[in-house]
Amino acid sequence: MAVHNITFTLNGEAEAAVVPSHMTLLQMLREEIVMTGTKNGCAAGECGACTVLLNGEPVNSCLVLAVECDGQTLVTVEGLAHDRQLDPLQQALIEIGGVQCGFCTPGVLISARALLDRNPHPTKADVQAALVGNLCRCTGYVRIIDGVLAAAERA
């Protein structure tokens, strides 16, 4: 099995890893780098729990090969807060109660971050569309959507 030496930017820091060809980005994050905020819910690109930003675009990290990230820029849920300052989305989800079990939360936050980065003033329908690939079984999405809208309003 071929392995590859790759370098990339992860949450603003330079990183390097040695990855087999078939290793997914999700596996690299969780098993090689041991940064476990990004969750594995289906390993098939269906639930969105493993969503990360790849060059600013939200991707299901279970469907991206690690080797594809060579030279690229990655942001995971651990990279949303800076200098002990939460991202407005994180703050809004806490305040509005958009977190229950918390397993979908990292993926939801990343998808929402990508939305606000390209559309700082989304409508409710925009938020729903942006989160349609992030399954949540606890909240009924109500407070997640409200949280994203509130974060957008504050920004």
Binding site: G37, L86, I94, G102
Partner: peptide, 21 residues
């Protein structure tokens, strides 16, 4: 009052079983 587990859950710090090493 706010949930006492939400901060660790929004930052990715919350540990679930699959996260244990």
């Amino acid at each position: 009052v706010g949930r006492l587990d939400s901060h660790e859950k929004v930052t990715g710090a919350a540990l679930f079983t699959d996260d244990l090493q």
